[in-house]
């Protein structure tokens, strides 16, 4: 395929497993991300969102391994790259924000030194030039008094400040893709909006492809071009953000919408999905969601949902869903 026609990031049939666990944590995940596009990856804890992000960077926690599939980034086969070239990709072409910004900063190293690393490694800047650039970056991410803050250690920063510093470090290598793994989950509500605005501004300015991992549908509505909903290590629904949020097809997405404060419940109640999230590593037959699914019983499909797993089926405008109930409905309508 021509490098130009291909999206910046193509994930095909990715499988990630930890030895000793009965089922893979990611099972056959496929996604694409275009230059400048924002793709939101949504799902409960344990659905494999973070593992997907770490797989892209080839930084899975020890023991975890990519057991199948392909990842192509700007035409390069990420999974077969030698370590040296992979290091050049990390921080230089793809950068990452994490959930606990303070824990992500070395407690014994100054903020400036950590932001400067990609500059020196990937941009070949000398110590002095890098320090000048660090101050610019700190200013860009909205940190007042950059010269003072640059000399701080992580414990001297608030969570929001630390995430801004992480953002400066992520941007310093001038990447093409930003992976933001729940960048606001650990922050105060008032700070969350500021950080999201910062991410949105910077990715527009730099035409950054952004993989935004979140469980907050309000965030999706505000920032994302497309959404992929994950459940137990696989994608159950994917499509343009507007389409998915306005007419969610998969029962799980619908349930998520009902739980979200985005759509207020007419009776003023806070709702939750019955049962607990199936962790990807738990072995389940058929559709992973069927034990908690209301549609399965309504459509008299329980036996089918229990026996075999549905495939991702597209509708007209690139909105795909993995659900027997949706498929049956479409068939009867047609």
């Amino acid at each position: 395929m021509n490098k130009r026609d291909e999206p910046l990031l193509v994930i095909e049939d990715l499988k990630v497993a930890f030895p000793g666990q009965s089922a893979p944590v990611i099972d056959g995940l496929s996604l694409t991300l275009d230059r400048g596009e924002v793709l939101a990856l949504v799902g409960e804890s344990g659905s494999g969102k973070s593992m997907t992000a770490l797989s892209l960077m080839r930084l899975l926690p020890s023991g975890g391994a990519i057991t199948g599939g392909r990842i192509r980034f700007d035409g390069e086969d990420v999974l077969s790259l030698p370590d040296r070239q992979m290091n050049r990709l990390r921080g230089g072409r793809m950068a990452m924000l994490f959930q606990q910004p303070q824990a992500m900063l070395d407690p014994t190293s100054r903020v400036s030194a950590q932001i400067a690393e990609p500059l020196r490694l990937h941009r070949g800047l000398g110590r002095r030039a890098a320090m000048g650039r660090v101050l610019d970056l700190l200013r860009d991410v909205g940190i007042p008094d950059p010269a003072v803050r640059a000399r701080c250690f992580s414990h001297e920063l608030s969570g929001g400040m630390a995430q801004r510093v992480m953002m400066a470090a992520a941007l310093s290598g001038d990447p093409d893709m930003l992976i933001a793994d729940e960048p606001t989950t650990a922050l105060d509500v008032t700070v969350q909006a500021q950080i999201l605005r910062l991410i949105d501004e910077e990715r527009r300015k730099r035409n950054l492809a952004t993989l935004l991992i979140t469980h907050d549908l309000a965030v999706v509505a505000a920032l994302a071009d497309r959404v992929a909903v994950m459940y137990a290590g696989r994608i159950v629904e994917e499509g343009p953000a507007k389409a998915v949020l306005e007419s969610p097809q998969h029962p799980y997405t619908q349930a998520l919408m009902r739980c979200s404060l985005l759509v207020p419940d007419p009776h003023g109640q806070l709702l939750s999905i019955p049962g607990s999230g199936t962790h990807a590593r738990e072995l389940t037959c058929g559709c992973r969601f069927h034990p908690r699914c209301s549609a399965a019983s309504q459509h008299g499909l329980v036996s089918r949902c229990m026996r075999s797993e549905p495939a991702l089926k597209p509708d007209a405008d690139g909105h795909v869903t993995r659900c027997w109930a949706v498929e049956t409905e479409k068939e009867t309508a047609a």
Binding site: N87, Q114, G173
Partner: peptide
Amino acid sequence: APYITAARSRGLSMRQTVMRH
């Protein structure tokens, strides 16, 4: 530690990460 993963995500090799962080 998380900051080791973060340092790796900035492109430091394992060796550099150990030396610096």
